[in-house]
Nucleic acid binder design. Sequence first.
RNA 1: GACCUCGUAGCUCAGUUGGAUAGAGCAACUGCCUUCUAAGCAGUAGGUCACAGGUUCGAAUCCUGUCGGGGUCACCA
Length: 604
Amino acid sequence: MLPVITVLQQATAKAIYTHYNVEISPSDIQIQETRKDFEGDYTIVIFPLTKHKLGSPPQIAETLGTLLKESVPFVQSCSVVQGFLNLTFENNFWKEFIVSHQGIDLSHSFFSPDEGKGKKILVEFCSPNTNKPLHLGHLRNLMLGESVVRMYQSLGYRSIACCLYNDRGIAICKSMYAWQKQFQGITPDSESYAGKGDKLIGDCYVAFSRILEAEVKLLTEEKGMTKEEAEKNAPCMIAINEMLIQWENGDPAIRELWATMNGWVYKANNRIYERLNIHFEKFYFESDLYESGRDIAYEALEKNIFTKREDGAIGIDLTSEKLDFKVLVRSNGTTVYMTQDLGTADQKYDDFQQEKSVYVVGNEQEYHFKVLFLILKKLNRAYAEGLFHLSYGMVNLPTGKMKSREGTTVEAEDLMDEVIAVAKENTIELGKTEGMNEKEIDALSTILGLGALKYFLLKVDPAKNMLFDPKESVDLHGHTGPFIQYAYTRTASVKREAVNRNIAPLAMMDKVEEIMHESEKNLIKSLYKYPSVLRDAANTYNPALLANYAYEVAKDYNRFYHDCKILMADKPYLSAARFAISNLTGQTLKKCLDILGIDVPERM
RNA sequence: GACCUCGUAGCUCAGUUGGAUAGAGCAACUGCCUUCUAAGCAGUAGGUCACAGGUUCGAAUCCUGUCGGGGUCACCA
């Protein structure tokens, strides 16, 4: 079944051709949903056609309206308001949609079109350092990445979630050094850490900053050094640089400490991924890949794609692209961050031969990825066309920016615990927990709390910076995850109740005039849009589109629920129709939330 | 300084490739549970779409400039 908009575009283009003998591409016909204050379902915008000299807008609209009524079976009537041709569909069109989709589950092609079948997409996200705990920013990243994975899965793609650990380098050495100095013998299992190795590492990292501060203070005050000199010459800085060299030389003791401490972070992060219901299929490690681009650089130099500067540095001149000369191998022979990215990109393609490859990384790295993708294109990589940087904005707090050095970060897991606790409080307060045991209450609170948090992060356009208000993020009313979850539980409740009432399926011969209450029709129209919303959201890598759509459906359902008796309607066919609509709503909401990584309860 | 990006109701955000009278939620006020879950529904109030020009049948949307927020401009990651 073609989407209505496509059908109408084609029919309109054809009508214009037969009547005016003017050829217009169907995709140039502007069609939109009719605004609420006007009569109609879809509207053709006539103004753009005036440039083909077909007459005045009202004339064209009248003519096309008449022709469309004849050629498109489901167009019942039309009205012309200025340059807009409003089309009203036969109620049968909407009923047909409900009849043919009643009782479908999430594996139905309506929810899971297979247009991406045989294609692969790789999504890299989270990409944490191993020297501090995941924070609020990572949560936004995680939710975006996971949603993109699931959107493409729903389109039939083989969708692969991967995560690149930045597990080596000077920052890691800082935590290691501080542990040696101040945390000897302390492990995640020590009393104050309750198994949370990421917190221990984070504390080490902060401790290093303190050590450095103290040493710098000493050097500036007693030896009269400048701040820069002091930072360079502080004993702890000398020590970590030494440590980095030892690491690179494979010093067993250093490597062992490194592996142990990273292990603490992996364990903690894995627990968080698990709690968020996020599953990475593949982990990459910087420690395996950090030199992997060097060969590519030399190879490119041979092919004259890269050049050697007078000072010996190898890189690529991008001034013709209005960018700078980008160094990829330093004059001392070492590689830079982007060199590693070249190697990693090849590695990914070797592993998966994907058509599309997405990097979910904050917008501060836009320039980096612009250059990286351009270089890969110039290197003629087969996968270069499928690269996409899903760039997202910062998450700010009401108190200002998060800064790890100032301790104003919000740690991911603390936040998760908090939203769950608040959800629990609210649930109990509302008296919704009657008949539930403690375990069930906790399970529900988790679904609601995390649902609120996840939805809060996903409803905002990824491109934009957002403000994270902790109070708002645990809200259960209004434009929130729990609001949508609640609408779902209503559909579930109706379904349970239906068993007692012998609701027959809706049949095509059932009367239609009466089943088109306004709030009923609005809901059906919203449900109908699901596949095109999914496509838009996937094509633009924007889960917010789906998040806002789910809210719209939930709102429409709540109005429908309020206005129309579902199981207790006057006529059996009314109940049948409404029950079918209710069920399709339930599945749609469940599917949308699932793509957003949000669970639904069956009652709340 | 150069480049990128954002600026919509008191606050947080929607607003399709330019289309009709710019929409939600929160906060405030008012109604609605004897009925499938009121974590809901309905209503009131709230706007110079930062500002100034331009493009055109038509601009929150496109162009130019100004102001303001954020970001990036490494042989850092």
